[in-house]
């Protein structure tokens, strides 16, 4: 279990995070939502160990995150960045291979190639193997980066390690609506299958409703509400988080809610 306790971070006199606590459980998907600037990405970077908080701490399976050496941390959690710009082009296979840099010496070249091939096939990327990464479309690039993250969290058959976590920072940004759905579906199902704990920053309420086990609503660096998706995804929490009213219906095609946001008018409801 990955657990943040009372994280606070102030930058330039402003509270970016204020007493934020949250939990990421193995095999489950925790989604954080909130307005722009609410502190979602900062919270994710704190969980990743890339940003240090002023107060509070992050624990990974009972160990203090800040005390873990970077190589060990790399085997425990992987981060899918919001956007990646390569300063010089690499091929798809070379980008994916970075996932095993932390244990480069432990694997032979043959083993590395086999693992890369495994993830190329798994994510349907074999035709792109030797393509230059920057020439790929946004959706393809995301899949390559996901493959890199999964390789980074690849369980070592020789030494089965503890729990592992996948942190997704706005994974759907810059993807078209079809890709958004497919990518989250792919990432969460692969993660669940491997027992990875997923922590994702998302903006789409319906994607969150469909794929999250738990949702955390952040506003101005504070946790407004958090809990299991079905219980927490209510008109009140959405309005308090985003200042947006919405219509929540039963989804016609699968069990769960269908949320329609109503940013300006409230024709369907009396004011709360």
């Amino acid at each position: 279990m990955m657990r943040a306790k009372g994280l606070s971070l102030h930058l330039g006199g402003r509270a970016i995070l204020d007493q934020v606590s949250c939990t990421v459980r193995p095999g489950q998907v925790t989604v954080v939502m909130g307005q722009n600037g609410a502190g979602k990405s900062t919270l994710l970077q704190c969980l990743a160990g890339s940003v240090g908080a002023d107060a509070g701490a992050v624990e990974v399976d009972g160990q203090c995150l800040a005390a873990l050496p970077p190589e060990e941390l790399a085997a425990k959690r992987a981060v899918l960045a919001q956007s990646v710009h390569l300063s010089f082009p690499l091929t798809v296979a070379e980008v994916i291979e970075m996932g095993c840099y932390a244990r480069y010496q432990q694997w032979t070249a043959r083993q590395r190639t086999a693992r890369i091939d495994h993830y190329l096939t798994l994510l349907d990327l074999q035709p792109f193997r030797d393509r230059s990464f920057p020439t790929l479309s946004g959706g393809e690039q995301k899949r390559v980066l996901l493959a890199k993250c999964l390789l980074q969290l690849d369980a070592d058959p020789a030494a089965p390690s503890g729990n592992r976590y996948l942190l997704l920072d706005e994974p759907t940004a810059a993807l078209d609506i079809g890709q958004q759905f497919r990518f989250i579906d792919l990432a969460t199902s692969l993660a669940r299958k491997r027992g990875l704990g997923v922590f994702a920053v998302l903006h789409d309420l319906n994607l969150a409703a469909r794929f999250a086990d738990e949702i955390i609503f952040l506003r101005d660096g504070r946790v407004l509400a958090s809990g299991p998706t079905h219980a927490i995804l209510t008109r009140t929490t959405i309005r308090d988080t985003f200042d947006v009213d919405c219509l929540i219906q039963e989804h016609p095609h699968y069990a769960g809610p269908l949320i329609t946001t109503l940013p300006y008018e409230r024709p369907y409801f009396a004011p709360a």
Binding site: E71, R77, E94
Partner: peptide
């Protein structure tokens, strides 16, 4: 190689 992605990404891949 990892630096090509950025410093933060390199750190997250396990480099000091």
């Amino acid at each position: 190689n990892a630096f090509l992605l950025g410093e933060r990404e390199a750190a997250q891949l396990g480099f000091r």
